[in-house]
Design a binder for these strands. Structure first.
Lengths: 116, 116
DNA sequence: ACAATGAATCGACAGAGTTCAATCTATCTG
DNA sequence: CAGATAGATTGAACTCTGTCGATTCATTGT
């Protein structure tokens, strides 16, 4: 490996299309479950604020989230993991740091699933 | 009271404007908490399917939800209550039955909170 | 190689959420 | 009024989730 900082995308998802529109036709159990996981990732005050902080700054280091969210390092790590697994956040490891950014397409999918 | 079936709206909410847009600026703790409650109401496979069934039929009786969702009567009652308290569902009691319908404005609020 | 540092993982614990049987309440029908 | 029925409430069992201290892993700089 070179000395150059590796650019490694963390938490990249298949980005499954995910689910139908709930106001159009009855959801299948599988679609409902998939959508519920994503909405579950959003349904937490700390994660919502985390997302909003990242969105406001375009890109944020994990280390810069502990203070504004007033949570411990393991807790921040847990929340970023949940959001990344839901495809809402993408992390890029640069050296010792992980930089996070929003995945706008995923958020758009959720909005669409919630009725065009 | 007359013999006529009372038309009583169940679970009507203040319909608080609820929250800012998460992709615009950091959310306050209060806004994050409010939005998390609504998203939490959505973050369940049974409730998502319940919503989609109601939306597809415009209006549905509680009694007609047990079979398609394969849940007990108390469980259905619990879920409709959660959704009504979140302002996503509105119930109208007519005689022995409660008829539920979607509150599209609330769903629109959630979509807006999730980005433009 | 070694010390320092940012992040992930593990283990434990408290609090919240889902589910259903049993029960209670309200309403309709005979 | 009595019986039947739709829905709400209660209580208990079980699972899931958020949180953090301690630890481990990965990377950087000396």
């Amino acid at each position: 490996m070179g000395r150059r900082a590796a650019e490694l995308v963390v938490g990249a998802q298949d980005a499954a299309p995910c689910c139908g529109v709930i106001t159009t036709a009855p959801l299948s159990e599988a679609d409902a479950k998939r959508l519920a996981v994503i909405l579950g990732a959003l349904a937490d005050p700390v994660r919502l604020r985390l997302l909003s902080i990242v969105a406001a700054q375009h890109e944020v280091c994990s280390c810069d989230l502990e203070a504004p969210l007033a949570k411990s390092q393991p807790t921040i790590s847990h929340h970023t993991k949940v959001l990344a697994e839901a495809g809402l956040l993408v992390g890029e490891k640069r050296g010792r740091w992980v930089w996070w950014r929003i995945e706008p397409a995923r958020l758009a999918e959720v909005r669409q699933a919630l009725g065009s």
